[in-house]
Nucleic acid binder design. Structure first.
Lengths: 66, 66
DNA sequence: AACAAATGTAAAGTATTATTTACATTTTGA
DNA sequence: TCAAAATGTAAATAATACTTTACATTTGTT
C-alpha cells in the first residue's frame, strides 16, 4: 500500500504536526502512515481525503500484496 | 459511520458469502461490517470500492461521531 | 556555527479490526 | 410445508491501528 500524503501535504504546505492536529491524531501517527509503517483506519483515511479535497483512492493506492 | 454495502450487494445480486469470497475475507466479517459492528480496514474498504466499481466515499459515509 | 522547527524512530500499552467456530433465525424456492 | 440457502449473532483469539512518551536526526534560518 502506497500513499501520497507527503505530496498532498506539500501542495498545501502543511506540516505533519499541523495535519495531525487538523485530523485529531498524533503527529507520530501521521509520520508512521506517511512512512508506510501502517495503513490508517477507514475513518482516518476518509478524513484525510476530505481534508485534502480528494478521493481516498487518490491518496491510498492498493498494490499486489494488499 | 454508515455504509451502503447491502444496497451495493443488491445491485449486483451477490450474497454476503459471495462477496466475502471475492474479497478474501470471512462471511462474518462482511456481515459484521454491514450490520455496523465495526468499520473495515482501509485496504478492505478500497477492495470493496474496486469490486463495486465506485468510490470508498460512496460506500462509507462519515458521521458527526466519527 | 547555533538555534529552532520539522521529521524520523522506538517501545510499551490500549483500542479496534478480523478471524475461526459454532449455532440460531430468517428467507427463499420446490 | 419442508429443506436449503442466506443472514444474524456470540465468544475467544489473533492481528493491526493508534496513543503516549521520549529522544535522535535532519533541515532551514539567522
Amino acid at each position: 500500500m502506497k500513499n501520497t500524503i507527503k505530496v498532498e501535504r506539500a501542495k498545501i504546505d502543511i506540516t505533519q504536526a499541523g495535519l495531525a492536529e487538523q485530523l485529531g491524531v498524533s503527529r507520530q501517527t501521521i509520520n508512521a502512515i506517511e512512512k508506510g509503517k501502517f495503513v490508517p483506519s477507514t475513518v482516518l483515511a476518509l478524513k484525510m481525503a476530505r481534508f485534502f479535497e480528494c478521493k481516498v483512492e487518490d491518496i491510498f493506492l492498493l498494490e499486489e500484496m494488499d
